[in-house]
């Protein structure tokens, strides 16, 4: 019974089944719905709708704005934090790192609800600053995802490289700009990837903050809850393509440093 002998390749069967059922098949379903109308006929209407409707295009732009600002704010907060945590000789730095990671362990709903209460106290009526609140909410949610890859890539940084740079005449600022920063690029990129894309779609944060603005995620949600699967699928497809392009671009970036790959969580 040679054909039934167990082989190491057989270990991947469960994953292959999962992949087909929950990734590949749904993809085809999405593509099918995106290019058909309610009656099941092939059409480009959904596609045309998306790129001609000011509502959808506006939402796309707004999502980008929220996502980019969120990513920028995360980076500005996370880089110095990760730098201090990774490079300082502090004895208690692991405790500090834990403090930044700890929120990830607390239930998301609880965290955002707490944030909502804080914002209510600070702003009075929280619906007055929807953009600001979106960014605050997303930053609060995604900050650890930026800190961790940065921390890992900065911690791996060989101290002798920094010494070599200062030995060759670089002052502290030059050492940072010409050695530390370029070598932490892989960490920056993986941080950006992990924050930028989710913050375009995570509309739950907005909902929970009583936010009436729309981002891409909210748009998809609203189409599907109105049983318009076709338009909903098309938007998902567009997002998928955007994500694909962004990943391609960032990979191109980190390929340049193929030999000192930064951290991917």
């Amino acid at each position: 019974m040679k054909g039934l002998r167990f082989n190491r390749k057989h270990l991947c069967i469960p994953y292959a089944v999962f992949l087909v059922l929950f990734v590949i098949a749904p993809l085809f379903v999405i593509v099918y719905y995106a290019f058909t109308n309610g009656q099941g006929h092939f059409t480009f209407d959904n596609f045309v709708n998306f790129f001609t409707s000011t509502k959808t295009l506006g939402t796309l732009l707004y999502s980008f704005a929220v996502a980019i600002v969120t990513t920028a704010v995360c980076l500005v907060i996370a880089y110095p934090t990760a730098y201090i945590l990774a490079r300082s000789k502090m004895k208690k730095k692991y405790v500090l790192l834990l403090l930044f990671i700890l929120p990830m362990w607390i239930n998301f709903t609880l965290r955002i609800t707490a944030l909502k209460e804080v914002l209510s106290v600070l702003e009075g009526n929280i619906s007055v600053y929807p953009f600001l609140n979106s960014v605050i909410g997303m930053t609060y949610d995604f900050l650890p995802f930026m800190i961790l890859p940065l921390y890992t890539s900065l911690q791996k940084l060989d101290n002798s490289l920094l010494e070599a740079a200062s030995d060759l005449g670089a002052n502290k600022a030059t050492v940072f700009l010409r050695v530390t920063l370029p070598l932490s690029v892989p960490g920056i990129i993986s941080g950006i990837t992990m924050v930028l894309l989710p913050s375009m779609t995570n509309y739950v944060v907005l909902d929970m903050l009583y936010n009436n603005t729309y981002i891409m995620g909210s748009l998809i949600g609203s189409y599907f809850s109105a049983y318009d699967w076709n338009n909903g699928s098309l938007i998902s497809l567009v997002l998928l393509i955007i994500i694909f392009i962004v990943t391609l671009v960032t990979n191109r970036f980190s390929d340049k440093d193929a030999n000192n790959k930064g951290a991917i969580l």
């Binding site: 060989d158 002798s160 490289l161 070599a164 740079a165 050695v179 440093d257 000192n260």
Partner: peptide
């Protein structure tokens, strides 16, 4: 340096 410490980038 002992381990060269060349800049990899």
């Amino acid at each position: 340096f002992q381990k060269y410490a060349l800049f990899p980038h």
